[in-house]
Design a protein around this nucleic acid. Structure first.
Length: 271
DNA sequence: AATCGCGCCTGACGGC
DNA sequence: TGCCGTCAGGCGCGAT
């Protein structure tokens, strides 16, 4: 999926197309996403104006006049803005048609995404309420990570991918950030020093910011709202590079499985 | 409390 | 060419 930089890229891309637009019609072509698209979405959202597009972790929040649409792109989801009569793909499951005849479409081949509706503040929604600080906010610091890691034996990579600790750090950027600050992804979270956590917090922010600047990473499915890919793939230093030389020292990048997820690291540069 | 690992889906790819 | 196993950017949930 779309990790945080891809979601943020999407947020920025769709904002000018949807803000101040009124939803003329909600079309649900297939409600069977990871969680069923609520039937009341159509009745509750139709006729409302979109006043803002926010993001919390990897959730996109369409702020409508009387509620919020909560969208998660799952593993293979993307949003695009097209003319309402543009050809529909079998993977375009949900569509918001606006008053200017444009449409915001969720395309998601694997259907791991979600489209939900809430009238209350999305921060209080059960799926969002337990989330840790935003990685790009002042809430993520080395001191905070060190504090939360106390006593935990889980691998540091798995630890920073736990959304309750810090949200929005996915599999690609976890590997990249750990390479940047020279930490072995297998190292126990509770046995990682404050000095290392300070470097890690900085590396997470730097990695995510650079990826956002490049428009995200397109491996396969991800596209921006105009259908174009993101370009951070060309800047990946370890992800997907097993067997290839480390960009820093030249030794072979190794792949291992941590918490059932592929992880890539340099055995020389990362300790 | 922390940790483990399954399940939700489809498509792409490599090996035989 | 075709079949089959494996893997994929996420994450919630139940069991231990």
């Amino acid at each position: 999926m779309p990790e945080l930089p891809e979601v943020e890229t999407t947020r920025r891309g769709i904002s000018p197309h949807v803000i101040d637009r009124t939803v003329r019609e909600v079309r649900v072509h297939n409600p069977r996403l990871r969680r069923r698209v609520p039937g009341r979405l159509r009745g509750e959202l139709t006729g409302q104006r979109i006043v803002g597009v926010d993001r919390r972790s990897k959730y996109l929040l369409l702020n409508a006049t009387a509620g919020w649409v909560i969208i998660h792109l799952g593993m293979s989801g993307s949003l695009r803005v097209v003319g309402e009569s543009a050809p529909l793909s079998p993977y375009d499951h949900v569509e918001f048609v606006f008053d200017n005849d444009s449409a915001l479409r969720l395309r998601d081949p694997r259907r791991f995404g979600s489209v939900l509706w809430t009238r209350r503040s999305p921060a209080r929604h059960p799926l969002l309420v337990g989330l840790g600080p935003e990685p790009l906010s002042a809430g993520l610091t080395g001191d905070y990570l060190r504090q939360r890691a106390r006593g935990r034996r889980t691998a540091v990579k798995h630890f920073i991918m736990d959304g309750r600790i810090v949200c929005g750090v996915g599999n690609i950027y976890a590997s990249e950030a750990l390479f940047t600050c020279g930490i072995d992804p297998r190292r126990a979270a509770g046995r990682t020093s404050l000095r290392r956590y300070r470097a890690l917090a900085a590396a997470i922010k730097e990695t995510l910011e650079r990826a956002i600047a490049a428009g995200g990473t397109t491996l396969k499915d991800f596209t921006r709202e105009d259908g174009k890919p993101g370009y951070f793939r060309h800047q990946l230093q370890v992800y997907g590079r097993d067997g290839l030389p480390c960009v820093r020292c030249g030794s072979a990048i190794r792949k291992t499985i941590i918490g059932q997820r592929s992880s890539y690291y340099c055995t020389v540069c990362q300790r």
